[in-house]
Amino acid sequence: PDLGLTQLFADPNLIENLKKNPKTSEMMKDPQLVAKLIGYKQNPQAIGQDLFTDPRLMTIMATLMGVDL
C-alpha cells in the first residue's frame, strides 16, 4: 500500500502550492528536489527510500498533510 501518498502527490498544483508555502518555498528553488517531487506523481513508492536520505521530504510531507512540525 502507498499509505495515501498517491493522493498527496497527485495534486496538479503540488509544486506551485509548495512554492507559495513559507515552510517549503526555499526548498522549491532546488531543481533536483522539484524533479523528485514530479517523479513521485508517477511512482509514489519511490519516496519511501528518499525519506531516509533527504530530510526536506519529511517537511514537505508534513506540509502536504497539514501537520505543523
Rank of each mutant, 00 (worst) to 15 (best):
Q49N: 14
G48Q: 15
E16P: 05
D68H: 05
A46G: 11
R56M: 07
G48Y: 15
A35W: 03
T59I: 12
P22E: 08
P1E: 11
A62Q: 13
D54P: 00
G4C: 10
S25H: 11
L8N: 03
L18T: 00
K19N: 05
L3F: 13
M58Q: 11
Q49V: 14
F52L: 15
D2S: 14
K23Y: 08
A46Y: 09
P1G: 12
R56Y: 05
N17C: 07
A62R: 06
Q45S: 15
L8S: 04
L18C: 02
T59A: 10
G4Q: 15
S25A: 14
P22L: 05
P1Y: 01
D68F: 01
P12T: 06
E16A: 09
E16K: 06
L3I: 12
T6Y: 08
I60C: 02
T63Y: 14
Y40S: 02
N43H: 08
L14P: 01
L51M: 14
T6E: 14
L37G: 00
E26P: 06
P55H: 12
Q32H: 13
T59E: 08
D50I: 04
D68S: 02
P12E: 09
L8F: 10
M61L: 14
K41N: 13
E16G: 05
D2L: 10
T53A: 11
V67Y: 12
L8Q: 04
D11A: 03
D68K: 02
P22G: 04
M27T: 02
K41T: 15
A10R: 11
F9H: 02
L18W: 01
D30W: 01
T63K: 03
A10H: 09
L18H: 00
N13M: 10
P55R: 08
P31A: 09
M27W: 08
M28I: 05
Q7M: 12
M65C: 07
L33V: 04
M27Q: 03
T6K: 13
P22M: 04
I47D: 03
D68T: 01
D68Q: 02
L18M: 03
P31G: 07
N13L: 08
T59Y: 13
I60D: 00
V34G: 02
D68V: 01
K29L: 10
D2F: 03
L57R: 00
L33K: 00
T59D: 05
L8I: 14
F9N: 01
A35N: 09
F9G: 02
K41I: 15
